[in-house]
Simulated assay, not measured.
Amino acid sequence: MSSTTDHALDPQTNETGTEAATAWFGNERVAEADKARRVHDVFAKVASRYDLMNDFMSGGLHRLWKSSLIDTLNPRPGMHLLDVAGGTGDIAFRFLKGAKGEGHVTILDINDHMLAVGRDRAEKQGLVGRIDWTCGDAQSLPLPDRTVDAYSIAFGIRNVTKIPLALAEAHRVLKFGGRFLCLEFCPHLAVPFFDRLYARYSDVVIPRLGGLVAKDEPSYRYLVESIRRFPAPETFAQMMRDAGFETVTHRLMSGGVCALHSGWKL
């Protein structure tokens, strides 16, 4: 797969001759103010089959990756987790199981359709009273400073318009001694031959699966493109440090298909 670290927002001259900020939406340059709306529309379309598609796309591996995040976090009774872009509840449910039902989760997602799916799942599992559901933006969290013990985001940060701002917000709301954990796909693989197979799979199979399972091929083409626009793990690690996180590490999984990023507020 090809890679790029060009996630920055470049100025683009608009019709009046002034500079307007733009951002990548997959392989397309769009007005910065328009990216969030487009991302919202993508996930509104796929929300009802999002978790099913994750199973198809990853062969079920996303379950192991998310379990690894929870094992790394090591939930404790009384811990308060903020799970961002976690509308369907996958991380939250695992966290509460690990905390033996004594923890609490605030789920924040910019997409109300994803949150609706998560609420339905939580009700079926008897977890409604243990989770707060908030429709909001990772770049402007509706939480006071130093209020959560841990922050998680799984396969969501690459969809944020201004990643450094989201990281700064994560650092702001964490208590001292709090931990940031992020699961995200890597833009390229370092394994010879496997990288070409994975690129072919991403380009051809994933969009077709999206069309068959989620009835939305274009959205899954965007998701593949968004992975390739995401910074390499080392670049993202530096972005975390720039936001104030310390003891920053990342661990590659499944041959480098994704990485688990970790940082502490100390």
Rank of each mutant, 00 (worst) to 15 (best):
A36T: 11
R37C: 14
R38A: 12
R38S: 10
V39E: 00
V39K: 03
H40Y: 14
D41K: 11
D41S: 13
V42M: 09
F43E: 00
F43H: 00
F43G: 01
K45C: 14
V46K: 12
S48V: 14
R49H: 06
R49C: 07
Y50T: 02
Y50R: 10
D51K: 04
D51Y: 03
D51H: 02
L52V: 14
L52K: 11
L52E: 13
M53F: 10
N54K: 09
D55A: 13
D55R: 13
D55M: 13
D55Y: 08
F56W: 14
F56S: 13
M57V: 15
M57R: 11
S58C: 03
G59E: 00
G60I: 01
G60Y: 02
L61G: 04
L61E: 11
L61T: 06
R63L: 14
R63A: 09
L64N: 13
W65E: 03
W65H: 03
W65A: 07
K66L: 08
S68G: 13
L69E: 00
L69G: 07
L69H: 00
I70A: 03
I70D: 00
D71L: 15
T72F: 12
T72S: 15
L73G: 07
L73M: 10
N74I: 13
P75H: 04
R76W: 03
R76E: 08
P77M: 05
G78W: 06
G78H: 00
M79H: 11
H80Y: 09
L81D: 00
L81F: 07
L82K: 04
L82D: 07
D83C: 05
D83W: 07
D83Q: 04
V84N: 07
V84L: 08
A85D: 04
G86C: 08
G87H: 02
G87F: 07
G87N: 04
D90A: 09
D90L: 08
I91M: 03
I91K: 03
A92S: 10
F93R: 10
R94K: 12
R94W: 06
R94D: 05
R94G: 06
F95W: 03
L96W: 02
L96G: 02
K97N: 14
